[in-house]
Design a protein around this nucleic acid. Structure first.
Lengths: 229, 229
DNA sequence: CTCGTTTTGTTCTCGCGTTCACAAACTCCT
DNA sequence: AGGAGTTTGTGAACGCGAGAACAAAACGAG
């Protein structure tokens, strides 16, 4: 009853006078893809594109794309298409990547290293303000220009920088403890790379990325292919 | 029309005399989670568990869990629950992780390192048989007990080891080329970590893991929280 | 100004996935 | 042996998302 992943249900009950549109979760998950496709088009010098073009670049159906964009508003021009830069800005604003998001990463193993160095974060407004690890031997290291600090500094860092998003890249056993500490400090969004199910209170969003699960899904389909062949 | 992610549609049209059950895609995605939960229960010494117990450990609704398991067969006992070891074996067999899956990883940057060292692969039957990189400077390195080899060795390795699954951990620009080469060598399942949309022919499964997209989804919800507050 | 062309925004329908609710089946106790 | 208590497996209802199809709107040619 506690563990809650990002769910559209709680967001549906929103009586906001202003924008008030609640975008379906499936659409939210695709907006970043559209954003990347638009960036790619802009870099190629394209000023305007049709929904067909953009859908092809994003790898989705054009009807689905138009419906997704319609949740944001009417940013296209019939008979013409979408202005690449304008649409890009609108999506970026809607997702929230026009602002700066301070992020802490806990667990500086192989994966933590990779995440800290990942350029895709910084380019989208995510700024790694701290790397934390429980192991004192790592506290001298400097990874990606940020030095590794003890896990107990979490609260200090979170309050100092106003961190709302935390990334867990620890072993499975430590993940729940880290999550609890994060929540206690005021973090309300967690990206969990540890292979464990997290329990968090209402109002905290958790997204899970599990590398081995993805491979297992592929293995299942691969096995099916082999059986019929 | 070419890019196809793992879809239940094509699997539905299957006239297999034997097991012939086509498991819904959503269920397939949860089976690895159940598998991990069962392993965890087994390590804790639990011999038997109810659907309620297992559902709690896996972080899902118990009704959903029971329905998911019912696609595999009737492996429980009413009034008692499920035998942990037995169910674990059945799920593992269904997914295909009882067998050995040779895997190649292309792109040995930070993420490639992390993937090569990830213990969760080996423990589930995935064996990294080769690490490939286009950069000649890396061909001397040994990562996770496997030495890095030139990308052109791909075909040789795939045929030698019967590799069916490939992992792409290259920059975005190289990803499509790598995918094309993989497909040409006979690889039919690709796990793509590069932030780009892959085009592959019918019959090849692609799963995408995009680190920055996950953060952007969290940012969207975080922004919504802040707006109403 | 009018007509034809292009492309968006939206409505409608269908299928999948989730959840509830309950009958069937098993155990244990008396 | 019989009944009370559990727990599974599944039928049915419901809601969300995908895709097709079309009407509304903009543009350009004549």
């Amino acid at each position: 009853m506690t563990a809650r992943t990002t769910s559209a249900k709680t967001l549906g009950a929103r009586t906001l006078g202003e924008g008030a549109r609640d975008i379906p979760e499936a659409t939210v998950a695709r907006l970043p893809v559209y954003l990347r496709a638009l960036t790619s088009l802009a870099e190629a010098g394209t000023r305007t594109c049709s929904s067909e073009d953009l859908a092809a670049a994003a790898g989705v159906n054009s009807a689905k794309l138009r419906k997704d964009l319609s949740y944001l508003g009417s940013y296209g021009t019939r008979g013409v298409g979408y202005d690449v830069d304008y649409l890009r800005y609108q999506i970026a604003r809607e997702i929230g990547v026009t602002q700066d998001w301070p992020v802490v990463i806990v667990g500086i193993g192989n994966l933590g290293h990779a995440l800290a160095n990942y350029s895709g974060f910084r380019s989208r407004g995510f700024r790694v303000v701290a790397l934390l690890d429980a192991d004192p031997e790592r506290h001298d290291e400097v990874v990606a220009g940020v030095d590794v600090r003890p896990f107990d500094d979490l609260e200090q860092i979170v309050t100092d920088h106003g961190v709302a998003i935390g990334v867990i890249a620890t072993p499975a056993l430590a993940a729940q403890d880290v999550a609890d500490r994060m929540v206690a400090c005021g973090i309300t969004s967690i990206l969990n790379f540890a292979p464990s199910v997290l329990s968090v209170p209402e109002g905290v969003d958790v997204r899970k990325v599990d590398l081995s699960i993805e491979l297992q899904i592929l293995a299942y389909h691969e096995q099916r292919k082999a059986q019929t062949a």
